Simulated scan of single mutants.
Amino acid sequence: MDVSGTRAADENTGPVEGIKATARRLLVELGAAGLSLEAVAEDGGLAVSALEAVFPHRDDLLTALIIDAYDESADAMEQADQAARAAGAPAGARLLAVTRALRAWSFANTGEFTLIYGSPVPGYHAPQDTVPSASRTPAVLAGIVRSALEAGELTPPRRAVPGPPLLRPEAVELFGGTPEAPFSDVIERGMVLWSSLIGLLVFQVFSRTHDSVRDESAYFDFALAVAAEGIGLVVPAGEGTDTGPH
């Protein structure tokens, strides 16, 4: 297959990566719903048949982009956590570091962020292949919360989640089992933290707070600290430097 005409490809980029690079650029221009094999082929200087030899359907291409987006954003978080742990940071500072890393990735890759956290793409249903990569972000958060629990860095909650367990066994397994009282509902609280983080990023990436917040970066840190209080974790104020948009 001759893909030498793909503008996104260079001598160090293979056919698959060149096609995906073109598709990522079009995500920003067209949105995920407007992405098609024909558009990618035209923009990349390819025959549609050549592209179909790699990605037979548009959904195959979307799936590849989704997996890459989850993996790349999780890589950024894991690297930030590794650096924080190497510096001897407590759990609250680790949480701030990994969420700042996700924020920086989100602003640097708005097309991919929108693909995985924006509105669902009409007609597309993510296959099971995307689950391992999608699970990496909550796994990073769960690891930090688990470390805080084991290190005695969590404050017991004022109230427990009422009624029967609210979570599927898979979520409990990801965390490593249900903790004992008074932290038996920390997994549920961790999911509140996770959803709050993604909602906050959606607000900031899509400029929902720009007309009411003076410093988006400082507000992000504040909002994260408030959300972390729900699991009894203290996030240090003004810790380090956020290199993301202000």
Score class of each variant (00 low, 15 high):
residue 94 R to Y: 11
residue 121 V to Y: 00
residue 89 A to E: 15
residue 105 W to N: 09
residue 108 A to S: 14
residue 113 F to K: 05
residue 85 R to G: 13
residue 82 Q to L: 14
residue 102 L to P: 01
residue 100 R to C: 03
residue 127 P to T: 11
residue 129 D to A: 15
residue 91 A to I: 08
residue 98 V to F: 11
residue 110 T to G: 11
residue 119 S to A: 15
residue 106 S to C: 10
residue 92 G to D: 12
residue 98 V to K: 03
residue 86 A to F: 06
residue 83 A to C: 04
residue 116 I to K: 02
residue 115 L to N: 06
residue 99 T to S: 10
residue 107 F to D: 07
residue 88 G to Q: 12
residue 106 S to R: 07
residue 104 A to Q: 13
residue 102 L to E: 11
residue 127 P to A: 08
residue 108 A to E: 15
residue 100 R to Q: 11
residue 109 N to D: 07
residue 96 L to Y: 07
residue 91 A to D: 06
residue 93 A to R: 13
residue 86 A to N: 11
residue 109 N to E: 08
residue 98 V to N: 04
residue 106 S to W: 06
residue 124 Y to R: 01
residue 104 A to Y: 07
residue 111 G to Y: 04
residue 114 T to F: 02
residue 90 P to I: 09
residue 129 D to R: 12
residue 109 N to A: 05
residue 126 A to C: 05
residue 118 G to K: 01
residue 95 L to T: 03
residue 123 G to N: 02
residue 119 S to T: 10
residue 98 V to P: 03
residue 86 A to S: 14
residue 105 W to P: 07
residue 129 D to W: 05
residue 125 H to M: 10
residue 86 A to G: 15
residue 100 R to K: 09
residue 105 W to I: 04
residue 121 V to K: 00
residue 114 T to G: 11
residue 116 I to R: 00
residue 120 P to E: 00
residue 112 E to K: 11
residue 85 R to C: 09
residue 84 A to H: 10
residue 125 H to K: 12
residue 103 R to W: 06
residue 110 T to E: 15
residue 97 A to R: 06
residue 121 V to W: 00
residue 95 L to P: 01
residue 125 H to L: 14
residue 111 G to Q: 01
residue 113 F to L: 06
residue 119 S to R: 14
residue 111 G to N: 02
residue 128 Q to K: 12
residue 91 A to S: 14
residue 121 V to N: 00
residue 109 N to M: 05
residue 86 A to L: 13
residue 91 A to M: 07
residue 120 P to N: 01
residue 92 G to S: 13
residue 117 Y to I: 03
residue 92 G to E: 12
residue 89 A to L: 08
residue 115 L to F: 11
residue 105 W to G: 07
residue 104 A to M: 08
residue 94 R to W: 12
residue 97 A to P: 04
residue 101 A to L: 07
residue 100 R to N: 09
residue 113 F to D: 03
residue 120 P to T: 00
residue 122 P to R: 09
residue 86 A to K: 13
residue 108 A to G: 14
residue 102 L to H: 12
residue 120 P to C: 01
residue 124 Y to H: 09
residue 88 G to S: 11
residue 100 R to M: 06
residue 116 I to W: 00
residue 90 P to Y: 11
residue 83 A to E: 12
residue 115 L to H: 09
residue 122 P to K: 10
residue 88 G to Y: 13
residue 83 A to F: 06
residue 126 A to E: 09
residue 85 R to F: 05
residue 118 G to R: 02
residue 89 A to Q: 13
residue 95 L to H: 04
residue 121 V to F: 00
residue 87 A to Y: 10
residue 99 T to W: 03
residue 125 H to I: 10
residue 102 L to N: 08
residue 83 A to Q: 11
residue 108 A to C: 07
residue 112 E to R: 14
residue 123 G to V: 00
residue 83 A to Y: 05
residue 85 R to N: 08
